[in-house]
């Protein structure tokens, strides 16, 4: 247990970026129809993609 703890940014940076993207997506799709609907859905989908990617990477390390 001699390893140093991560900084707050290292712990919360990625979730923070995902949260900001999600909020822009949620509000963006609300402000206008058409292309903003797709941009909004895509920004919100980044959260899902991030989780799926983490799972696949873990699976590859395992194999």
């Amino acid at each position: 247990m001699s390893r140093k703890d991560f900084s707050a940014w290292a712990v919360f940076g990625a979730p923070l970026i995902l949260a900001v993207l999600s909020l822009i997506g949620l509000v963006g799709a609300l402000l206008d129809d058409g292309v903003w609907d797709r941009i909004g859905a895509a920004m919100l989908a980044v959260a899902i993609v991030a989780a799926a990617r983490a799972r696949f990477r873990a699976g590859r390390r395992e194999a």
């Binding site: 390893r3 703890d5 991560f6 290292a10 712990v11 940076g13 990625a14 979730p15 991030a50 989780a51 990617r53 983490a54 799972r55 990477r57 873990a58 699976g59 390390r61 395992e62």
Partner: peptide, 12 residues
């Protein structure tokens, strides 16, 4: 998460 990188899933 203080010593685990974001997205860690310890499958083993």
């Amino acid at each position: 998460m203080r010593r685990l990188p974001f997205g860690t899933v310890r499958l083993d």
